[in-house]
Nucleic acid binder design. Structure first.
Length: 573
RNA sequence: GCGGGCGUAGCUCAAUUGGAUAGAGCACCUGACUACGGAUCAGGAGGUUGGGGGUUCGAGUCCUCCCGCCCGUACCA
């Protein structure tokens, strides 16, 4: 309403000069609240009107008058700055939140059916901090795209088969007397996998013969898995289930859910069929004894789809899986949340799907993100520096409980868990996808500063105000014009809250949840300033009403924004 | 070699997609009504945005050439 009023006012004074200008796009908030709520830059008019931008700004401002939602118009240098009527803006936001139109404004004009594949954990390997970034990003995207009105299928894809699994089982077979721990069995299996990998390397170091012997005995295990040899199959099924149970436990704790699960172990036959079909159709060709997808027309290197020994690869499974996504799930868009080291793989996958005749291949999207690092440097499961998830969880929880104890509050386990999750997810999400995340447990759980706890704290403070305000106030009532509402701290917060729908859209466009995470943090900063500068309960009735309404709006928007990040609010902490 | 990513305060990150004096947090220094929750707020100090050139009213952002780090580059996943 305010913005459209500004556009209308500009269009009126500009006349034909506005013909080629996208006024809505040019209008943007000034860097500081005291400069107004929206600004119009006059640079594009300089050529048309053949005058200096500041002069044009002054002329335009003089030609416009305040009225309706516009409280004031004035020129500031080369900009025309519009000031909103704060009470009207507050009323607009509050009513929009009450009748659902504000959140409704987040919705896309073109809803579609989209599948988001993320997490993709490997069984028989450690689930560690690094994997948490993928889960955080993927889950946030699922939530955001749903808020945008899309029909989202959240998909997981378990790497539960293949030579790596065989390695782990091979090692266990040789150390059968060792018992798995009660907690962290995935990590325990991961250790076995690592030990097996080291054993292979050691053997190889001794010579080709020794290396081949070890690899052959591992391959025997794989063959046993493929052919259903009883002992191997029993061990495989049991250990696989341990991993799936532990993954379920992790997702449960994090509040992450999937609509469908895919398993690598189920794609072998479909993969073979994709390759055979492709050969028959001339999509794939033979090369050096292997089957490839020639992507020269797409300026990409060839992609191997079947090894010369006849076995399939990662690409083969992914092609088969993509086929299911299109044919069985009928998705219009397919999103893959996978680390940036696989960028080439996905370019090749999408190009190959295009060659196979899937028009929607062009709407496939690889959401790539950089690695998680430790303050000491790269994580290495080899060196044991990767922090297994179960260990991470207890360490973060301990840090949060310690802080609660220090603050003298009774330790509320439910709240402690929510705060721990907020710290972890916010830490993973507030950095842009293209940059690596440095996981520093001290930093992330630091009670002071830019953390998930800070976000929850602002909500706890709002809840505190509301508890003391009681039920007596009718927030639906209008704020009188002379309430005194509208100082900088109030308008800064109000402006920020209003921008929420655009932020949600931007997250979809960029597939980068850090946009939203930073938005909430910035909002929490603005709320804290409001909180310290603007007493609510002690204010005069009219002003108190306005501030209570603003606090309520803040609560609604923050709660919604955090939920899109997969973070739950707490009442007290 | 080729392709992609990154480089912003001592450290960790932003910057509304080309706009006003490049902003936050940590760490350091100084303050805040016996408090609607101090897990907070205000202020100070800290910058040649890796470097050079270019595009234009205007560049951290776009083009170009260097430098540094990371990733990828058909029979691993």
């Amino acid at each position: 309403m305010f913005k459209t009023a500004c556009i209308a006012a500009l269009r009126e004074v500009l006349g034909d000069d506005a013909a080629d200008l996208d006024l809505g796009a040019l209008l943007s908030p000034p860097p500081k609240v005291e400069m107004g709520d929206l600004a119009f830059p006059c640079f594009p008019l300089a050529k048309i009107r053949r005058a200096a931008p500041p002069k044009i700004a002054a002329e335009l401002a003089a030609a416009m008058s305040a009225g309706g939602p516009i409280a004031e118009v004035k020129a500031l240098g080369p900009y025309v700055n519009f000031f909103a009527d704060p009470a009207a803006m507050l009323a607009g936001l509050h009513d929009g939140l009450a009748d659902g139109s504000f959140v409704g404004a987040c919705r896309s004009e073109a809803p579609k059916r989209v599948m988001i594949e993320f997490s993709q954990p490997n069984t028989h390997k450690v689930f560690h901090v690094g994997h948490l970034r993928n889960v955080s990003v993927g889950d946030a995207l699922v939530r955001v795209l749903r808020a945008r009105g899309h029909d989202v299928v959240a998909a997981n894809y378990y790497g539960d088969f293949g030579i790596d699994v065989a390695k782990c089982l091979w090692w266990l077979g040789r150390h059968a007397q060792e018992e798995p721990p009660a907690e962290g069995r995935t990590a325990w299996l991961g250790d076995a996998y690592t030990a097996a990998t080291l054993a292979v390397e050691e053997a190889e170091a001794k010579g080709k013969e020794a290396g081949d012997a070890v690899k052959a005995s591992i391959r025997e295990v794989l063959t046993g898995m493929e052919e259903g040899e009883p002992e191997i199959t029993a061990r495989y099924r049991e250990t696989r289930q341990w991993c799936l149970d532990e993954f379920a436990d992790i997702y449960g704790w994090l509040g992450v859910t999937f609509d469908t699960d895919f398993f690598e172990s189920e794609l072998e036959a479909a993969g073979n069929k994709v390759v055979d079909d492709g050969l028959a159709e001339g999509v794939f060709v033979e090369s050096q004894g292997a089957i490839i997808s020639d992507l020269e027309s797409d300026s990409l290197p060839v992609a191997l789809v079947r090894k010369s020994d006849g076995s399939s690869l990662y690409m083969t499974w992914d092609l088969a899986l993509a086929r299911r996504k299109f044919d069985e799930f009928n998705v219009e868009q397919s999103i893959y949340v996978v680390g940036s080291e696989q960028t080439l793989h996905f370019k090749q996958l999408f190009a190959t799907l295009g060659k196979m005749g899937y028009e929607r291949a062009k709407d496939c999207r690889h959401v790539s993100y950089e690695l998680v690092m430790l303050p000491e440097g790269k994580m290495s499961s080899r060196k044991g520096t990767a922090i297994p998830f179960h260990q991470l969880r207890t360490r973060v929880l301990d840090a949060i409980r310690a802080k609660m104890a220090e603050a003298g509050s009774a330790i509320d386990e439910a709240a402690a868990n929510k705060i721990a999750i907020a710290c972890l997810k916010y830490g993973m999400l507030h950095v842009g996808n293209t940059r690596s995340v440095i996981f520093d447990i001290e930093d992330w759980t630091n009670p002071e500063g830019d953390t998930g706890a800070y976000l929850l704290y602002s909500l706890a403070r709002i809840a505190g105000i509301q508890r003391k305000a009681g039920e007596g106030v009718d927030l639906g009532a209008d704020v009188p014009a002379d309430s005194g509402f509208g100082v900088e701290a109030e308008r800064g917060l109000l402006n920020h809250l209003t921008a929420f729908p655009q932020i949600v859209k931007r997250v979809e466009d960029t597939c980068d949840p850090s946009v939203l995470a930073n938005y909430v943090y910035e909002g929490a900063k603005r709320f804290s300033r409001f909180y310290s500068e603007c007493p609510v309960l002690k204010a005069e009735p009219a002003l108190k009403l306005a501030r209570l309404k603003l606090a309520a709006c803040t609560q609604r928007v923050f709660t919604e924004a955090l939920s899109l990040l997969g973070i739950d609010a707490v009442e007290s902490m």
